[in-house]
């Protein structure tokens, strides 16, 4: 089956392309659209599709996507948990949160639970240093007074 953007996403794509003097500059935004539309990750088909839309070779889309940590080149869980591990957060106890999550979910950082619900990852400074430790769930910040107990509460509320 060949992938294709919905009409709405295609319209967004066309608008995006119109914002740049060179089509190629729309590659990052297009990859974002594709990741959102095609299940939270960029499969080889999705990458080829993006490349085709922008008249680029598929290798270009792969090369660019693989440079940036926020493009998932493998399927991820329904919830991607990312904990900042850089200095200010680490001083505030980020590694306690990371270890707690590893134990709770039974997976090391970088992996997905067998039921496909959670992917656990570390992040570098998320610009929340004053309110660390900080965790992102699918991009949403959870940053005030994060503790192991608070993490449990947050996860328990996820459907």
């Amino acid at each position: 089956m060949t992938l294709q953007f919905s009409n709405e996403t295609k319209a967004t794509f066309d608008w995006l392309v119109s914002r740049y003097p060179e089509k190629k500059a729309a590659l990052l935004p297009t990859l974002w659209l594709a990741q959102k539309e095609f299940g939270g990750w960029l499969s080889p088909e999705a990458l080829s599709y993006c490349a085709r839309l922008l008249d680029l070779p598929p290798s270009k889309a792969y090369s660019v996507a693989s440079f940036y940590t926020m493009y998932n080149l493998q399927p991820v869980g329904r919830y991607k948990l990312e904990v900042c591990r850089t200095l200010s957060c680490a001083m505030a106890g980020a590694f306690d949160i990371i270890e707690h999550l590893e134990q709770k979910l039974g997976i090391p950082c970088g992996e997905t639970t067998p039921d496909g619900k959670f992917t656990l990852a570390t992040q570098e400074c998320l610009a929340s240093c004053g309110t660390g430790p900080v965790m992102q769930i699918n991009g949403e910040y959870y940053e005030e007074n994060l503790s192991a107990a608070r993490v449990d509460e947050i996860l328990a509320r996820l459907p």
Partner: peptide
């Protein structure tokens, strides 16, 4: 951007903007 500290460096930022 898409998660790369180096894209804060101005020339890297421009390269990234160019796709």
């Amino acid at each position: 951007g898409a998660g790369a500290y180096i894209c804060g460096e101005e020339t890297a930022l421009l390269t990234s903007l160019e796709g």
